[in-house]
């Protein structure tokens, strides 16, 4: 197969309102070019799964009104502070938070990639996360060693939480490399493989197209998402900005700080978004 490169907008052209979309944390390649395409398309009502947390990518989509439900371990801009649009949208009720703990997101996607209905996970019992997650179930460990599992003795049941599988309709990835056969190289962010395996469809923007087949190189093949899982690829050099891309470019800290300041009000966010959609950001100007 020879990969037909798509435009970034074409990658999300078929995405329906209300779809379940998923992306990995900002430091694993924030798909900011895809955020621009999603917002430009005007998609609404998304269920956004943050693997396992959300940052700028999530906050921008939420601020632009694309998201109805946000699921994951948390949304934050790390050292830059709280995610302003997320906080505003949760407080106003514009977005429904589906709070969980980070390993539960990984577990749910691992169940998804295995094609099994759930994954058990330690922890969570007694938390208010569980109180508000009717979809999470507690069962007694059915294979506890003899003597530790006595249903008559409440203290001996070894309760454990079952996390339902997540199979996103669409995984959104920004990766360093793709090859002409449609394989993606994600390098040390190999957990993106779990995401692509679990999702029904995966689209990716990439920094570059590699010569040859990425699977032919044993040093790189461990970090490859097989073309089997990849629906379409578009070139988007520096497509994670203002977030960074490990080993390629640093996050633009000044631009993220400016975002935090602008997005403190809905009007400020609107102005920021207009510039972002026009591709007119300090980082892009600097890059050109």
């Amino acid at each position: 197969m020879t990969l037909q490169l798509a435009s970034v907008d074409a990658l999300v052209a078929d995405l329906a309102d209300g779809a379940v979309v998923a992306a990995m944390k900002d430091t694993s390649g924030a798909p900011m070019a895809l955020a621009r395409a999603l917002i430009g398309k005007g998609v609404r009502g998304l269920h956004l799964v943050n693997m396992p947390t959300g940052g700028l990518f999530a906050d921008v989509l939420i601020g632009a009104g694309c998201v109805a439900t946000v699921e994951g371990g948390g949304v934050s801009l790390g050292e830059y502070g709280q995610a302003p649009c997320f906080v505003r949208a949760v407080k106003s009720g514009a977005v429904r938070p589906l709070d969980t703990t980070c390993p539960a997101v990984y577990a749910a996607l691992q169940a998804g990639e295995k094609g099994i209905p759930f994954m058990p996970l330690r922890g969570l019992i007694g938390s208010d996360i569980l109180t508000h997650r009717a979809d999470y179930k507690i069962v007694d460990n059915p294979i506890a060693p003899p003597g530790t599992h006595d249903p008559a003795d409440r203290a001996m049941r070894d309760p454990i939480v079952l996390i339902p599988a997540i199979r996103p309709d669409l995984a959104l990835i920004h990766a360093p490399l793709a090859d002409r056969d449609g394989n993606l190289w994600v390098g040390r962010d190999h957990e993106l493989r779990i995401l692509a395996h679990a999702a029904r469809h995966t689209v990716a923007t990439v920094e570059q197209i590699a010569a040859g087949n990425l699977n032919a190189d044993p040093l790189r093949s461990a970090g490859v998402i097989s073309a089997l899982y990849v629906d379409a690829v578009a070139l988007a050099p520096r497509g994670a900005l203002p977030c960074g891309m490990a080993g390629l470019y640093e996050a633009d800290g000044a631009a993220i700080a400016a975002y935090v300041q602008a997005a403190a009000t809905p009007e400020g966010f609107r102005a920021w978004l207009d510039a972002f959609l026009a591709g007119d950001t300090p980082a892009r100007r600097a890059a050109e």
């Binding site: 947390t53 948390g74 949304v75 997320f86 949760v90 407080k91 009720g93 703990t101 539960a104």
Partner: peptide, 17 residues
């Protein structure tokens, strides 16, 4: 919860670790 008067990032890994 969920429409709280102050909202922080989330529980992150705490409910497990």
């Amino acid at each position: 919860y969920p429409r709280q008067k102050a909202r922080w990032g989330g529980s992150f890994g705490s409910a497990y670790l």
